[in-house]
Design a protein around this nucleic acid. Structure first.
Lengths: 99, 99
DNA sequence: ATCCATTACGGTGTACGTAAATATG
DNA sequence: CATATTTACGTACACCGTAATGGAT
């Protein structure tokens, strides 16, 4: 298993899907198109499925891509919520390395 | 933004928590202890919270760690399910990279 | 010709293993 | 002394940006 799929891949995928373009998704993520393009290629390669479909100037999703979109968004949202929640908990139990 | 927290961190955390030791968690993950230890340190540092508590020979969770455990396990499980699901969909829409 | 995506290539940083050091029982 | 964890250090490769190429309108 060479490349491991990461939550980053889901994040990029959601951004591209919502922007309906790699260009817009990359801009939204503050990255270059090639960076996003490469990661999406890796994701498709790993899954063995085409997720995107070039339709004129817009990059739309394949049926599989549509199936993927909602769960991907849900997971990334939950993930971010978890991290944010723990950040707030730190007010209570500040990291006391030793006592 | 130096280090980005990843689903890998959640995975390692769950493994260590369930094994109640870094050693056991690392073994279960097929990694070395230092690798896991380093990632857990990064996670704690990023969150600003202590997650583990040395209690005799066992490595247990702090209250914050206990709060973290269930959501972390849930997210990683959902993540894996999503990837696995897409893998099965590939039977229908095989990836035709080039033709 | 313009816009969007992919390919190619090099630099930087992260993840990991091995080995040594430290702590705890 | 044995077991468990951390620290130190070197290496491999994943990620990203820039630049160049390809395609479609």
């Amino acid at each position: 298993m060479k490349h491991q799929i990461n939550i980053r891949h889901l994040r990029y995928f959601v951004a591209v899907a919502e922007a309906e373009s790699f260009c817009g998704g990359a801009r939204r993520l503050g990255l270059s198109q090639p960076a996003v393009s490469q990661q999406m290629r890796m994701l498709e390669c790993y899954l063995g499925i085409s997720l995107f479909r070039r339709c004129g100037k817009r990059t739309l999703l394949t049926p599989a891509g549509l199936t993927f979109l909602k769960p991907a968004g849900d997971i990334t949202r939950r993930f971010d919520d978890l991290i944010r929640t723990l950040g707030k908990e730190s007010d209570l139990s500040e990291v006391p390395p030793r006592d």
